Amino acid sequence: MSGRRRPTRLLDVAEHAGVSAKTVSRVLNDEVYVSAETRERVLASVRELGYVGDAAAIGLRTRRSGFVGLIIPDVRNGFFGLLTRAIEERLTPASPALLLGDSDEDVDQEERYLRLFRQQRVDGLIVLPCGAPSLPDAVSEIPTVVLDRTVPSVRGIADHVLPANRRAAEVLVGHMVGHHRLERVALVAGDRSISNIGDRQNGYRRVVRAAGLRPHVTDGHTTPDEAAAGAYALFRTLEPPFGVFTTNNRMFWGALAAIESLGLTVPRDVVVTTIDSIGEATVTGLRPTQAVVPVATVASRTMQLLAERTLDPTLPPRRVSVDLDVEYGTTCGCVPLTGSPLMVGSMPTP
């Protein structure tokens, strides 16, 4: 076995190009006082030898790691995948690489990633938090943006980019109550302790209370199966027609499963609205009525705040609110169904 090859060093490039190590450094840093002929000879040696540099050495010199750390709650959730991609597309040349951590909504796992990113001296931190105890320490050490949701420990000390979840919920529930004249509107919700879910629940309750209606709630669910069980128990107590507002895509799919199990039809018997991008619902023939977080806008504002915080650490904490995009579809009846959907409950008798 020949073993692994030793990585090419800056000294190897200098020897190959017939110049000093300082000249190679000047070329790689795009400094002046290097002739065009020498610059091209050094770059040719870099290409031929496959030199990629030493990140640790560069970091010592520039005091930058070249990394931005991102902690998301669930890599399996399509929204967080879209958000990660949008942030990666907006990285700057100064910090061109993204380190990704999946907390899986677990405080201890989030704590491990925070410790790792602090050890790696990341240039910036973006976190969708679940409450790790060292998050305030990370905010004090690293330019940080808290995204999508927040926790009490950083509300007054960190920059935030937060979707206007309560306002979006009010629009969707208000649409069912005002436009569709429904007297019964149910809520199928996730964990209220997560701030964005709590905001969506608050929007539902405000509209229902203002309309003088009774709230019908099943909440605290984390999976579609849990949501389906809770929704089934709740929906069987309601007389159609009624409305359903779900707080995210998992709750949406759970609610649809309960509707199908009860032999009800969307939107004839049940009007359904949700917050989250439910692109997968196109396979059912449904176009959900939904409020969607504008991922590109959220990512752009996040990177803007991160850059400003990096340039001026003394800035006071900023809070940016981003309105959601509301799309009306077939699940509320505003857009007629075309063709035969694969799953909307029992089909009407011809």
Rank of each mutant, 00 (worst) to 15 (best):
G174W: 10
E183Y: 01
R184A: 15
V185A: 11
V185G: 07
A189Q: 03
G190H: 01
D191A: 08
D191C: 09
R192T: 15
N196Y: 14
I197C: 11
R200F: 09
R206K: 15
V207I: 13
A210K: 13
L213W: 14
L213T: 02
H216A: 08
H216N: 07
D219A: 08
H221T: 13
T222D: 15
T222I: 12
T223N: 07
T223I: 11
A227T: 11
A228N: 08
G230P: 06
A233F: 02
L234Q: 05
L234A: 03
F235Q: 02
R236W: 00
L238E: 04
L238F: 07
E239Q: 09
E239A: 06
F242K: 05
G243F: 13
V244L: 11
T247Q: 04
T247M: 09
F252P: 04
G254H: 06
A255S: 07
L256Q: 11
L256A: 10
L262S: 06
V266Y: 00
D269Q: 00
V270R: 01
V272P: 01
T274C: 12
D276P: 01
S277A: 15
G279I: 10
G279W: 12
P288E: 15
A291Q: 02
V292W: 12
V293T: 12
A299P: 02
R301K: 14
M303K: 06
A307W: 09
D312V: 09
D312F: 07
P313Y: 04
